[in-house]
Amino acid sequence: MTAPPLQAKDYKSELKPIWCPGCGDFGVLQGLYRALASIGRPPHEVAFISGIGCSSRIPGYTTAYGFNTVHGRSLPIAQGVKLSNPELLVVVAGGDGDGFSIGGGHVPHAVRRNMDLTYLVMDNQVYGLTKGQLSPTSPKGLETVTSPLGSLEDPINPLLYMLAYGCGFVAQATPADMPGMAALIEDAIRYPGFSFVNIQSPCVTFGEEDQQLKAHKTKLKPLESLGHDPTDQLAAMDLARAYGTELYTGVFYKNPKPPPTYEALVKLRQAEQAKKARPRDRVLDAYLQK
């Protein structure tokens, strides 16, 4: 007898999210459940790795294995998990501060190693958990408690960064378009390599009015409707430059010929090297004086 197909609710844990009512992350979580159900891997074969921040609470709200780690370090930790058990479906989740500020140094390296990980950033342009400070994606001039006179810095552009780092799958979504977002998450997970989805997930408490889902609904522009070819990396970069002014959703870039993943190369190396292994209790023979 085959088990009935998994449903979104099979991935939902009993833990109640602590997010503020109206938070964009609720929608992201729902979209995630659905994407997982559609993919159909049982929860115990899925590992969610996150850092610190409102959105990094996500692993606890799923029935999968979760690791809610420390601020900014989810990517290296996830790589250790994936390399140790490549069969797992590993999803990394976190906020814009976690990923592009404190953890920013890890991102290019995670991308260039190209493990089959999916990185979901819930980008809300503000630090929510610590009460409304400037974040790396906050627009220039934004007044926050740490920039009461307006920020003097330009925000980073996560989409352009990821494309420049050579990421094989770069997309943007918003929970204002639930079906589109769920489909993108699913598509990202199915991409055989490192995939990135920047999810514009508004902060209902500290976010700007024009960043809320209601505003998203009116301003989002699906890349598909613009006739964008997602295999055109340069066109993707050109479009990505509009981050912060335009809300494009959909796939910016998807490598039509994904290269082998890091873990696949590791597997090959392990198989090739296994022949040369001494018995483990003879490892010291390597140092035997001839």
Binding site: P5, Q7, A8, G22, C23, G24, F26, G27, Q30, R34, A37, S38, P175, M178, P179, A182, P202, V204, Q212, L213, K214
Partner: peptide, 14 residues
Amino acid sequence: RREMIFDVEAPDYD
């Protein structure tokens, strides 16, 4: 399947 529909009668999260 439930995945075929999105927020038909369900209020939006926000």
